[in-house]
Amino acid sequence: MMRRIPIVQGEHAVVAEPGVIISTLLGSCVAVCLQDPVARVGGMNHFLLGEPTEGLGDRVGQERYGVHAMELLINRMMQQGAARNRLRAHLYGGANIIAGLGAIGSSNAAFARRFMETEGIAVGRCELGGTKARKVEFMPYEGRVRSSVVADAPPPVLNIKPLTPPDDGDVELF
């Protein structure tokens, strides 16, 4: 019996056991599936780089969400035994599906490619861009991944939790 872990924007999941599928639905967002084939640890995140409410004039603000999402995923995989130099990535999403939003999908896709190049992570499958929503299913332990085009319409918005900086004032030491 397969176990399913659906994730939405801002979330990630890491798995080190057989028979588990991590799935997500993507429009202009990007999902990165990472796997260490030796440790058999893998995970997926789902991030939207742009933060519509702030950071438009802030050249760091635009990328901190993607960088942070990748760091969370990689750190959690390493805690479960993955080694950075063995990581292999599959990239999905980054479609330009909503007229008027500009090329946000393209910039997300470009970020994902650039990140893997900067970090020296090998890229396997790369299905980025286009104009259609995608469903992605990843079996981290087995290292299998598949995607399908969902429809011309953007994916439904499910419980969107924007990646906002957490309240760091709750441990007041200074």
Partner: peptide
């Protein structure tokens, strides 16, 4: 953060952070 404070850290920043933070 609490352990860092005990070890004498001067401050901490929670990721993801904005340059202003």
């Amino acid at each position: 953060v609490q352990k860092a404070a005990a070890l004498g850290v001067n401050n901490y920043v929670v990721k993801p952070f904005a340059p202003a933070a």
